[in-house]
Design a protein around this nucleic acid. Structure first.
Lengths: 216, 216
DNA sequence: TAGATTGTTAATCGATTAACAATC
DNA sequence: TAGATTGTTAATCGATTAACAATC
């Protein structure tokens, strides 16, 4: 044990890989594959078998010598580690193109991510239902979160509006923010912020193109 | 020089940070800040000054001893490194919620990312214009790319449909794929693939919530 | 010039890979 | 049992941080 509550420190590098393991195992499970060894999986995923074993062993011994890993069991265990063995209540702030698209994204409910409402200031949007999700006024955000025990808030608003919303989220009991605004911020009280900076991802692609072999 | 064409190897860790430097410098520039030292910037960005200097020096000596860095100059230089000193022609495959949202995203043209068309198989969508972007049939994808010298393709389709589209992109002359499909793939001929796996990002948030202090 | 701050080398830290004993 | 493959320790590799000489 590495700390007094028995939790080992897990690096960001490992956390970043966990959902990918989960995805591959889900596909194997869907194909009816029962067991897989770290070296078979390493070929599929294009990583080293050693890394797979190291990663998994941070969370427990999920395999069996001479056998490998049971696909369904490992899939379920990683699901538990990722916290997607139980549903998550989510709301989206910003009912623009991106907020609406995310709120209607078919894949999320599959993993227990349930988006219950969107919030916006545009009177033309308030009261409407977009992709099955009702749009409410931002003034009701705090109340709604507390009444419905919302756990995660998706921020799909311009960075200029983000600061104020972040203020309003303090003390509401939310556990995490999924941030699409083009800005960084920290939340007090152990609220987790996960950033998705789409422009930056596109810039990395641009960088790789500009610096790939052809022009080297 | 580290290779015969004079290009130094740049690690993914550094590339990941470049757009963030660009963003902070853009904000400083907008605020009218003329010069900044690595230690001032390090406080703003919550990284070490040493890392900033190391990162930048991979691309050249942009600073001046005793002075620091000229904000506008450094901003422009990083823009060049990122390849956003010139426009990029882009099309989106998939005119669903996400594809439409991305195609209408206001921030992209600002950086020279111009989305010229969307492609879809849905007859109800073909011929329409969504957020100012025309929707064309997928059967015209290859032709359109070649005639218009499209450089980047955004994949906003389910993974089941991705394989076939990837096939069709071969030999069209595109340089990169921005992939939102829930699958990994490689492209031949040095075509760059940048993945944005939204579900995986949300799972990482879920992981952090499930394993944060409160439940430790 | 003196002070400030870079560019760059050296030291440290952490993550990945290799190796192999344990064991199913 | 013998063979296979994990779990885990040790070795390597790479990235980050510290330190300081160069220089504006």
């Amino acid at each position: 044990m590495d700390s007094k509550n028995g939790k080992k420190y897990i690096s960001q590098a490992i956390i970043r890989r966990l959902p990918r393991y989960y995805r591959y195992l889900g596909e194997l499970k869907a194909e009816g594959v029962e067991r897989i060894s770290s070296s078979e999986l390493s070929i599929l995923m294009n990583v080293t078998a050693s890394q797979i074993r190291q990663d998994l062993n941070n969370f427990g011994g999920f395999g069996q010598q001479g056998y490998g890993y049971n696909v369904e069991y490992l899939y379920d265990e990683i699901g538990k580690i990722l916290g997607i063995d139980r549903p998550h209540k989510i709301v989206t702030v910003g009912a623009g193109n991106l907020g609406s698209a995310l709120s209607g994204y078919q894949n999320f409910p599959r993993y227990g991510f349930n988006i219950l409402a969107m919030f916006d200031n545009d009177p033309a949007k308030i009261g409407t239902v977009i992709h099955g999700v009702p749009v409410l006024p931002v003034s009701e955000l705090r109340d709604y979160i507390q009444k419905n025990e919302i756990e995660i808030v998706i921020l799909a608003i311009p960075k200029e509006e983000a600061r104020q919303i972040i203020q309003e989220l303090n003390g509401t009991g939310i556990r995490g923010v999924w941030n699409f605004a083009h800005t960084d911020f920290e939340m007090p009280g152990g609220i987790i912020v996960e950033n998705v900076h789409l422009s930056e991802s596109l810039m990395r692609l641009s960088y790789e193109i500009a610096n790939s072999g052809d022009f080297g």
